[in-house]
């Protein structure tokens, strides 16, 4: 790759698998539980975090030499909250329909520990370009897991994907439901997300034994 050095590329690619923020670092679990009952919400959240983390990492990286270390967490929080509120207000004025869809995510984005975690662990110690790549990489890694979890929860819990019925009609008993199959109501509720994430972690670690910590 001409545009990205090998090291730069690893900033984007590592969080997708072997350094995934959700399955390896176990960050951002709260939003992974809350909003993955439907695939659509997962995708919207993934895109929102991609934007906020990419921009936020650059802003924090640019400010890294002037932020007083004693209040750095508060400064990071203010930066991310300001960014999100500005976007929310501008959307409310110029793209009202879109803002209605996104406004419920605002609180979840501000308090997302992946965002604070990358500010603290990466952007405070690295330049803007690297921080940008790190932000994009981690947001993608987060988004991939969110979408996988959302896919299984919506498919098994509601029998739909993006709201479209893919397994037939559960009430009229058509399609797969004609064979006696039932939606699993447990998949709709948040604990199911923990189980799906747990299965992903299990598969990932059994494929790559190096990820298992020694006791």
């Amino acid at each position: 790759m001409a545009l990205l050095t090998k090291k730069d590329a690893s900033l984007i690619l590592d969080p997708l698998a072997d350094n995934n923020p959700i399955t390896i670092q176990v960050l951002g679990i709260c939003s992974a539980l809350a909003i993955t009952a439907e695939l659509k919400a997962s995708v919207v959240m993934a895109i929102s975090v991609l934007f906020v983390l990419g921009v936020g990492n650059v802003v924090i990286s640019l400010m890294r030499n002037i932020i007083p270390s004693k209040i750095r967490i508060i400064v990071q929080l203010i930066v991310v909250a300001t960014l999100v509120i500005i976007v929310d207000q501008v959307l409310k004025a110029f793209a009202y329909e879109l803002s209605k869809t996104l406004s419920v995510f605002v609180g979840l984005i501000i308090t997302n520990c992946i965002i604070m975690g990358r500010f603290e662990a990466f952007a405070l110690g690295n330049g803007p370009w690297k921080s940008f790549l790190d932000g994009i990489g981690n947001a993608l890694g987060y988004g991939v897991i969110l979408i996988i979890v959302g896919f299984f929860r919506e498919l098994l819990g509601s029998g739909t994907l993006f709201g479209f019925p893919v397994l037939g009609n559960p009430i009229a008993k058509t399609g797969l439901y004609a064979t006696g199959y039932e939606n699993n109501g447990f998949m709709i509720i948040p604990p199911a997300a923990l189980i799906v994430v747990g299965i992903i972690i299990w598969i990932q670690r059994s494929r790559n034994v190096a990820l298992i910590e020694d006791n």
Partner: peptide, 24 residues
């Protein structure tokens, strides 16, 4: 800049509040 000094921290915090508050 000595970012560890208390006075710097206070000035930084004050400026940040003013800037962010004004923008919002």
């Amino acid at each position: 800049i000595n970012t560890e000094k208390n006075s710097y921290t206070v000035i930084f915090a004050t400026l940040m509040v003013i800037v962010v508050g004004t923008v919002l």
